[in-house]
Each structure stands twice: as structure tokens, then as C-alpha cells.
Amino acid sequence: MHIPDNYLSPQTCITMFVAMAPVWAISVSKVKVQIKEKKETVPLLGIASSLSFLIMMFNLPVPGGTTAHAVGGTLLAILLGPWAASLSITVALLLQALLFGDGGILAFGANAFNMAFIMPFVGYFIYSFFKRFNQEKIGAFIGAYVGINLAALIVAVELGIQPLLFQDQGGNPLYAPYPLSISVPAMALTHLLVVGWVEAIFTVLVFSFVKKVSPNSIYLAGNHPQSNVKKMLSRFYLIIGGLAVLSPLGLLASGTAWGEWSASDILPTLTQNGLKAHMPAGMAHGLDFKPFLPDYSLFGVSLPLGYIFSAFSAVIIFIILFKLVTHEKSKIS
């Protein structure tokens, strides 16, 4: 799950940093409020980061003799609340990148987005949905499973768009070479079948242990859970909305940075090179953009367009998913 450097283009990395920035900003402000109410939150956050670090380095056995490690995103969100968990995991990831070389330094924003944002928040929302029905354990299990799988899907998308967007003149990929059609099934398969189960089982068992031994040690969402959840949701929408705006920007950024080829030079080169040639991302921004809608496509849509489309589709699916969750909630209460 930790993406190393050079697998993602620097342009993607910057986009992911920008995407993660509002999450960090809100987390800090949220946590500052939490500290005013309960001052011990400060040491707790630091110690939780070290815990998160240790969860990510501890190998768990997997049938077949190998090992995998849990991320603990959903678990920490359930135990500490999603904002605090997000900060703690971020700090753990930062230390891993700077001191252990686990996960890239440039890719830190992307890794934080996947593991310190998607995973804890998705996991926590699913958990709190099931909590309404007093099915906390089922919620923890499904939350962890869906959380890590969604994060894996996003990793796959981040990797999978690289060969579409960043190629040299010969159409060869500059970064991770596998297109979505390979990266998505590969990540989905390993996470749906193995890693997701490790995460889910680990999460539900630790949760049950803590609940049994010391039930007060689990995060309660403030005095007014309803309003709190609503507030959190509105923030979540804000971030998702921001992302929708940013994803096409990511495309542009990839073009503006290095205009080492002129648009007219490259068109013949591309066609000469036959099948391997893709539309270089640089072109998306260029003057010759309009007539160029080639055959090379993602599910029958031209590539840059396909990218924007899938980004927007993902956002829409998100919104629907969370609308559904909150709708159920208000009906019950």
C-alpha cells in the first residue's frame, strides 16, 4: 500500500499533496478543538502515531506461508475518532518516509491520501452506520474491509493513470508502466482476497478486545453525535468537491511543467509509432488539443477525457454512497 517514489509522476504527487492539504488543515483545527475540551488528546495523538507505526510494521501470518501487514486506518478511526486518526497516521507515514524509506518522500501526499484519509474516513462512516443498529463489530469488520479495498482501488487508479498521462516521445511509460486495465484488477484481487481480510479480522478482533477489557477507551463522537456527524459530512463533501476541481488540474499540471516537445512535432511521431503511441499528457494543455481524439482509449473514451470522467464518476459514487448512509441515519433517529 505504500507507494515508493518514481512510481508516480511528480505532477501526480503534487496534485495529491494539494488534495490532502485541506484534510490536514481541517484535522488540525478539529483536533485543536478536541484538545481544548480534553487536553490529554495531545499526548494521546503522539502515542497513537507510534502505535499506528508499529501496526504497519508488524507482519501478520497469511495462509500460504507469507505475511501481510495491517494498516489499522479504520481501527484507529474507531478508537480515536477519524480526525485524530488521520493526523496520527499522517505522522506515522511521514516518519516512515523520512526515516525508514517506506513509501516515497514525493509520494507522501498520495500515501497520506490513501491511508490517512480514505481508509479512516470510509471505515469510520461505515462503522458509525452499523453502530446505529448496535452492530459495532459488523461495522468494524465491514468498515475495515471496504476502507482498505477502496484505498487499494485509489492506489490502483493513481498507478494506472501514469502510463496514460506520462510517456516519452516513443509512447513508453515514464513511471509505473501498468495501465488501469492491469493495475486495478491486480490491486483488487490481492486486497479483496487477502489483505482486506487481514485488515478486517485484525480490526474487529482488536476492537472486541478493547471493548471487552475497557469499553470506555473507545471514541465517542462528541455530545451531539448527530450534529457532529453532519458537520463532518459537510466537510467531507467539501473535500470531495475540491478534489473534483483538482483532478482536471492534475492533468493540466502535467502539461505545463515540461513542454519539451512542440505539439506539431509530436503528432507524426505518435502515429508513426503505431499502437504504442498514446496522447502525451502535455498535449492536453496544448494548442492542438481539439482535433485529437484518438482510438487509444479507456473503455472507449479518449484518454485524458476518460481520466476526468472516471474522477468525476468516482466523486459521484462517493456522494451517493454517503448520501445513502446519512439518509438511513436520519430515518432511524
Binding site: K39, E40, V42, P43, L44, G46, I47, A48, S50, L51, L54, I55, F58, L60, P61, L79, I201, F202, L205, V206, S208, F209, V210, V213, S214, S217
Partner: peptide, 29 residues
């Protein structure tokens, strides 16, 4: 029940973490 045992290990670690945090806070205060 390997996973159970390992998860208990992390559960205990979390609880210790939490009580350590509280102790640390009182020390800071």
C-alpha cells in the same frame, strides 16, 4: 486462534498507550 492472540497483543498495547497518555498528561499538567 493466532489472529485472536495477535490482536489481543495490539489491544493491550492500545490500552497501555491510552493510560500512558493520561499519565503523561498529568505529568505535563
Amino acid at each position: 486462534h493466532q489472529y485472536q492472540s495477535l490482536s489481543n497483543l495490539f489491544g493491550s498495547l492500545y490500552l497501555k498507550t491510552k493510560s500512558t497518555a493520561l499519565e503523561m498528561y498529568s505529568a505535563m499538567e
